[in-house]
Design a protein around this nucleic acid. Structure first.
Lengths: 189, 189
DNA sequence: CATTAGGTGTACTGATCGGTAAACCCTGTC
DNA sequence: GACAGGGTTTACCGATCAGTACACCTAATG
């Protein structure tokens, strides 16, 4: 019942795809870097695309778990969590192996909205937005869904600029804007 | 002196790469869809990467020209232009052949910061930020460079959500935030 | 001991990749 | 009328692509 080999494969493949890109990573390279035979890989996944989808599911669980977990670590107040998200992002951007958002890359490389890989990517951003809206609601702020959309906007923009920008601290720029937005959505004036 | 054939190639290749992705588009397909022979292509460009860089330069000139041109059409006031950018973006997102930002895709597919294709992509966002800062300065607003960074944040976030989001109007969400930011940067309180 | 499940290595398939070679075909200009 | 530049077609190169076939190994279970 242990499916450790499959898990090991997904975990290693996630890292390799993230670092190296999807189309740019051949199956032979995957074999070489994971030490798992191609036969074995294709016993667990019918196609490369299936494997990619699995890595995205894994990454989605990890990333959302980490982000919202870190926000909860930083503060227990839902209202402050919305702002603390940008501190968490700041930490993420400054990790030495930060290479942008894996889902943005996936969506770039597989543009067809019908493609399961693209679906997985758009699912990820939808889930993040939904969680933000939930927190905004819990915080009792005005127009929680509008606020969540705006915070998502800032979050995605910060990721892009952290990836493609030249220096600076986009997460902190975003935090400044987010702070204003949250203050304005405060029902107590 | 006429380099019409080269221009025709770059123009057609830009559209194909934008619609189809870079790595996913083979040279044979480029030949088939442009009607230009491979020999001819390689007489103008040493490698596929060189051609890609040329398409990015072309797209950069077109996109920035269109965006800032449209902003100027919508209003002559620099201050209002900063806000009108999001109306222009809204128009762009709703064009039937909108497929996201070509430079984000380029940066996704060629992650190495030393790679000329990645450089071209980061150059593009840097140029946009610089132009925004220039306009903010001209508008006489407070902290123009900070404001420009925040507007760039909103712009990139809107592009991502327009590409990967599910419906909604991210450009208009961003416009609402941008309006507040510009108002707050007004030196006359 | 026999069976079975999960793993391995090696070798291979046909297709496609980026890029090249060579012969030819116009259309202008000296 | 010779020549040259820019274009064409066709065929090809070695490398790599995703995916498969097959024989073998090993450890747990009956």
């Amino acid at each position: 019942m242990r499916q450790t080999k499959r898990d090991e494969l997904v975990e290693k493949a996630t890292a390799i795809f993230y670092r190296n890109g999807f189309q740019a990573t051949g199956m032979d390279r995957l074999v070489a870097e994971t030490g798992i035979s191609k036969t074995s890989i294709y016993k667990h996944f019918e196609t490369k695309d299936d494997l990619i989808v699995a890595t995205l599911k894994s990454r989605d669980a990890f990333l959302r778990g980490w982000l919202f977990g870190r926000m909860a670590e930083l503060t227990s107040s839902p209202r402050e969590q919305l702002i603390a998200m940008f501190d968490a992002l700041h930490e993420w951007f400054n990790e030495p192996d930060f290479h942008g958002c894996m889902f943005a890359k996936a969506s770039s490389e597989y543009q067809d909205p019908e493609h399961p890989i693209n679906r997985e990517a758009t699912d990820h951003v939808a889930r993040i937005s939904a969680q933000l809206a939930e927190i905004a609601e819990k915080a009792g702020l005005n127009h929680p869904s509008e606020l969540a959309r705006q915070l998502a906007l800032l979050k995605e923009g910060a990721v892009v600029l952290a990836t493609m920008g030249r220096g600076g601290s986009p997460a902190l720029d975003a935090k400044a804007v987010a702070t204003k937005l949250v203050e304005e959505a405060d029902p107590d004036k």
